[in-house]
């Protein structure tokens, strides 16, 4: 498991029903692409976050399949639109099988 993996998410506290708003996510991760070599010329094995998904009250907002070409500390920004108050859940899946999650509440008003 990669060390110090910390997800950060920015979601507005409230939103108008049916109106699109922006969500920004960032997770600290080295995203070792598997293309690099160490000082002895041996390839460094790939270790990335390969999947991200965001759900709202059980309904999917976006899913992303990340590849080795995504930068260190993968940043993903997207839009959501909701009709009722609820909770966003964010899930990142690591190559090593671990899963990082975060959640944010939002009220419609």
């Amino acid at each position: 498991m990669a060390d110090n993996v910390k997800p950060r998410v920015r979601v507005p506290r409230s939103a108008a029903a049916g109106e699109a708003f922006e969500i920004k996510t960032l997770i600290s991760h080295k995203m070792e692409s598997g293309q690099r070599k160490d000082s002895d010329g041996n390839p460094i094995p790939r270790s990335i976050i390969n999947h991200f998904s965001c759900d709202f009250n059980g309904e999917n907002v976006i899913q992303a399949a990340l590849e080795g070409a995504i930068s260190t500390n993968p940043y993903i920004q997207f839009e959501a639109s909701i009709e009722e108050s609820g909770t966003f859940t964010f899930t990142w899946q690591d190559d090593d099988g671990s899963e990082y999650t975060d959640s944010k509440d939002i009220t419609v008003g």
Partner: peptide, 18 residues
């Protein structure tokens, strides 16, 4: 680089990354 799938709650078919 990356593949996105938009779900029913997506506000718009737009996304950014690095």
């Amino acid at each position: 680089v990356i593949g996105f799938n938009f779900g029913p709650r997506a506000g718009g078919q737009t996304a950014s990354t690095r």
